[in-house]
Design a protein around this nucleic acid. Sequence first.
DNA 1: CAAATAAACGGACCTCGGTCCGGATCGTAA
DNA 2: TTACGATCCGGACCGAGGTCCGTTTATTTG
Lengths: 227, 227
Amino acid sequence: MLYAGVMSAALPPFPTPEESHDAPQLLQVAPSPEEPCLRADAARNRARLLEAAARLIAEHGVAGVTMEAVAAAAQVGKGTVFRRFGDRTGLLMALLDHSDRQLQADFLGGPPPLGPGAPALDRLRAFGVAVLYRSAEQLDLQLAAQPEPTRRFSHPAIGARRTHIAVLLRQIVPDADCDLLSQTLLASLDPALIHHQHRQRGMPMERLEAGWTDLVARVTRTEPPPR
Amino acid sequence: MLYAGVMSAALPPFPTPEESHDAPQLLQVAPSPEEPCLRADAARNRARLLEAAARLIAEHGVAGVTMEAVAAAAQVGKGTVFRRFGDRTGLLMALLDHSDRQLQADFLGGPPPLGPGAPALDRLRAFGVAVLYRSAEQLDLQLAAQPEPTRRFSHPAIGARRTHIAVLLRQIVPDADCDLLSQTLLASLDPALIHHQHRQRGMPMERLEAGWTDLVARVTRTEPPPR
DNA sequence: CAAATAAACGGACCTCGGTCCGGATCGTAA
DNA sequence: TTACGATCCGGACCGAGGTCCGTTTATTTG
């Protein structure tokens, strides 16, 4: 389990203030237009908390990330953790934030086929594969960071992915209900599903990758790629 | 919110003993071959607990279903609740058990197009629609009964549905990776997804139904039905 | 019917997520 | 530099899920 990415994600002092779980923004990419910019001590504590959480994960796994433990490790009061991140999943999602932004930057402005420049169909294929492997790398954290079912699709990062898929789909199958189809496609990349297929049913990642490619071909009614 | 179905589910003294959450049986239908058959007092308490839980839901919503409250309402010790149902989700899933069996009986042996007799494609369409509306009716309970991500696909009832979809798919697109496709299709019927589309994004159920029909057509590479 | 054994019971107890509010700190403006 | 208000901090506190184990009860066997 390599949590190096997670560690680095903890370092930038970008604030994700406590109001982070409602803004229905469609496409986030920068640390949001202009954050209320935390007070100096708040920003410092935020960074220490993320770092402490990452350290706890590295040492004791996700299960070891107790709100009290994180607070203690960061030498901070428990209330501070909740003030900053709202709840446990908020903290864990913040740990994934860096990697979320990375992915988003890649498919919004990175090199093809993930980024713009390639045909939409190729971008869609590449997107799924990217999400697949990214999730597989951080599966434990991804699973633990899943909020209760009611909010599972409310996270901005998820919304951004859905929108991206929908945009691509509209270029390929303009007549379809792309808003709906995009959700379905995204659901097939759910970390819990990956966990079940890969770990519980033992399917190799290559098969999941092929499954995604095939699914995209079927849904778009195009020929499967030669492989 | 009609919980009549739930109430009636509480009545049959069928035991679902504490070992119910691992048996990887492919198709359950009866109350399992021969349950270890609970002791008389245990069966009685089980029934009282289910009844109490259903009553609490009817009165205070799912949020009112506290393990202690259920125990108290059933005039039983808290430990007994956990012994019987393992954990909270176990209790809530037990409440859905009756409706699960009903659905299963319908698609395994009921009248077409859900049951055998109709072409596989029609059965697949009907299956999705059935699951869709059934879930919509009990959304709150369905959402609350979702276990942590790790076990979300381990429930026997889910496995049965997956298998059923896979069987149908194999008759329609024998060359596809039906085991994988079936999971994807099932994922698009996830209660959390329905909740998000229908309640949070305001899509009418008819649109979700059309979405399923369209998805099935695309995935099987068949013509969409005339409507 | 009585003794023996396995199963079930109950509730005290623990942990952990989440809340609350009096007090400390930071940023700012005079 | 000082004063002031907004923001933040901390940890006591609460509720609910889950565990444990001494006690009770159903069932079986002689």
